[in-house]
Simulated assay, not measured.
Amino acid sequence: MVIKRVLAGLAALIAGGTMAVTAGGPAVASQAPAVSPSASFIVSEAQFNQMFPNRNAFYTYSGLTAALDAYPGFTNTGSEEVKKQEAAAFLANVSHETGGLVYIVEQNTGNYPHYCDATQPYGCPAGTAAYYGRGPIQLSWNFNYKAAGDALGIDLLHNPNLVQNDAAVSWKTGLWYWNTQTGPGTMTPHDAMVNQRGFGETIRSINGSIECNGGNPGQVQSRVDLYQKFTSVLGVGPGGNLSC
């Protein structure tokens, strides 16, 4: 079943907070590819620090590189240009979602009780208010924690706090969404970049139901601006189809 990602009541950063990945139905429980040795990340630590000068110390470069083996095709598919564009696209969306990698958890605590879909057979074993947004793409809802955990081989349904306490796990959940979920779009963000469909398609897959087709042009432009900034840091052109 294709995930339909909506941002319930969080169309922008609220009270200095961050947005949260939410969904109207269970995510596709894609399994992570078999682990294989990852090549060095196409973004250097110095470039990462340049992109995120005010980042929270939780979001470590080493945590990100430790997570790469979960999805070896990420930033490792296609030409050097495509690899850099995918890295810039992922990090730009992540930056937008977390206020520049500042926020680890969703800031609007009033939303916390709303992310438990009790109709799921496994329920909400960590508590009905335990599945709020966490991590670089702000994973939310019990069914997303279940699907991401199943794919990664980590019991996130019972231990959702791992996403805010373990940097590698946190990054892996972001990579899970990026590489396996289509959201309200028609393709995963990874496929959008490696097939050169453009940065705009990644926005559609992450929050298109709220932001695209004129829904929130300011938020779209924020993502585009970050993408162009990060491609500049990596010394690569942004390509076409930047907006949605």
Rank of each mutant, 00 (worst) to 15 (best):
A23G: 13
T109A: 14
L152V: 03
M187C: 11
S40C: 06
C116L: 09
T77K: 11
L64A: 07
S222K: 14
K4V: 13
V82S: 15
S140D: 06
G16P: 04
I3F: 12
L91K: 00
A29F: 09
G99H: 04
L162M: 11
S30H: 12
P113E: 05
S79T: 15
A87V: 02
G110H: 04
Y145H: 09
L234S: 06
T60A: 03
S243I: 13
I104V: 15
R55D: 00
V233T: 13
S243E: 06
S209D: 14
Y131N: 07
Y122F: 12
K146Q: 15
T202E: 10
L101H: 01
A67S: 13
V236L: 12
A12M: 08
A129K: 06
G78T: 14
P189E: 05
N76P: 12
N108Q: 11
P184I: 06
E86P: 04
D155K: 03
I210L: 15
N142M: 11
Y177F: 15
E97W: 04
D69S: 15
G63E: 08
S232Q: 15
V2E: 14
E201N: 10
I154H: 05
L156F: 04
V224Y: 00
A92T: 08
Y112K: 01
I210P: 04
V105C: 11
T231E: 09
L68G: 07
K83Y: 04
V194M: 10
D166Y: 01
V220N: 03
G239H: 10
I203F: 07
Y115Q: 13
Q164K: 03
V2T: 14
Q107P: 06
L234A: 09
A20D: 12
L68D: 09
I104P: 01
G9S: 08
K172A: 14
A129L: 01
G100M: 07
N179R: 10
Y177N: 01
G183I: 08
F143I: 10
I206H: 02
Y115G: 03
L139I: 02
N165L: 05
G100S: 04
T173F: 05
A118G: 05
D155E: 05
Y115S: 09
P53H: 12
Q228L: 10
N213L: 09
V220D: 04
P37S: 15
W141E: 09
N165I: 00
A67C: 08
G174A: 10
E106H: 12
H158D: 12
T119H: 06
E106L: 05
V105L: 14
K172F: 02
Y131M: 08
G9D: 04
N49G: 11
D225V: 03
